Simulated assay, not measured.
Amino acid sequence: MGRLNGKVAIVTGAGRVGNIGVAVARAFLREGARAVIATDMRAEEGYDIRALVAGDGHAGVFRLVEHDVTSEADWARIVSDTVAEFDGLDVLVNNAGIAVHGGILQTSLEDLRKAMAVNHDALFLGIKACAAALGQAHTRFAGGGVVINNLSMASYMMNATNIGYHVSKAAGRMLTTCAALELGPQKIRVNSVHPGVTMTPLIREGLEAYVAAGMWESTDAAEAALAAMNPLGRASQPEDTAHAFVYLASEEAQFVTGASLYHDGGIGLRY
Results as ranks from 00 to 15, higher is better:
Met229Lys: 14
Val93Lys: 12
Ala137Ile: 00
Arg26Trp: 05
His194Tyr: 05
Val53Trp: 01
Val147Lys: 08
Ala171Gly: 14
Ile163Glu: 01
Leu109Ser: 06
Gly2His: 00
Ala14Asn: 11
Ile20Phe: 14
Ala76Asp: 11
Glu205Leu: 12
Met174Tyr: 04
Asp74Cys: 09
Arg30Gly: 06
Ala180Glu: 15
Asp74Ser: 14
Leu151Asp: 07
Val11Ala: 15
Asp56Gly: 12
Met153Leu: 11
Val246Cys: 09
Asp111Cys: 11
Arg3Asn: 02
Arg30Thr: 00
Lys187His: 14
Val36Leu: 07
Phe245Arg: 04
His120Ser: 13
Gly21Asp: 08
Gly206Arg: 06
Leu226Asn: 07
Val53Leu: 06
Ile78His: 09
Arg189Glu: 05
Asp81Glu: 15
Ala38Ile: 01
Ala160Ser: 07
Val167Asp: 00
Ile49Val: 03
Ile37His: 09
Ile148Lys: 07
Phe141Thr: 00
Thr39Phe: 10
Met157Tyr: 05
Gly196Leu: 02
Gly126Lys: 07
Ala142His: 01
Thr176Ser: 15
Tyr262Trp: 07
Ser155Leu: 08
Val8Trp: 06
Ala25Phe: 08
Leu261Phe: 15
Ile37Val: 14
Gly103Thr: 01
Ala235Gly: 11
His263Tyr: 10
Ala170Asn: 04
Val91Arg: 09
Gly268Leu: 02
Gly126Cys: 11
Val256Lys: 03
Ala154His: 04
Met174Gly: 11
Leu232Lys: 01
Lys114Ala: 15
Gln254Met: 10
Ala228Gln: 08
Glu223Ile: 10
Ala122Ser: 15
Gly135Val: 01
Ala133Thr: 04
Asn159Glu: 08
Thr198Gly: 11
Ala23Arg: 07
Cys130Tyr: 14
Gly21His: 06
Gly143Cys: 03
Arg140Trp: 02
Ala73Arg: 08
Lys7Phe: 05
Asn94Glu: 12
Thr39Val: 02
Arg77Ser: 13
Leu207Gly: 04
Glu182Trp: 04
Ser218Asp: 04
Met157Trp: 07
Thr161Gly: 03
Asp81Tyr: 13
Val93Cys: 15
Leu151Cys: 08
Ser192Lys: 06
Asn191Phe: 08
Met157Gln: 13
Ala38Gly: 11
Met215Tyr: 14
Ala129Ile: 05
His138Ala: 12
Ala133Asn: 14
Asn19Ser: 14
Val147Leu: 15
Ile37Cys: 13
Ile163Gln: 01
Pro238Tyr: 12
Val167Trp: 00
Asn5Leu: 01
Gly102Ile: 03
Cys130Ile: 06
Ala224Val: 05
Ala171Val: 00
Met153Glu: 09
Ile20Asn: 12
Gly97Asp: 08
Leu4Cys: 03
Gly268Val: 02
Asp40Met: 03
Val147Asp: 07
Asn95Phe: 15
Ser236Val: 00
Ile163Cys: 03
Asn191Trp: 09
Val256Cys: 15
Arg26Phe: 04
Thr257Gln: 06
Gly135Trp: 13
Ala76Phe: 07
His263Phe: 15
Ala84His: 14
Leu232Gln: 06
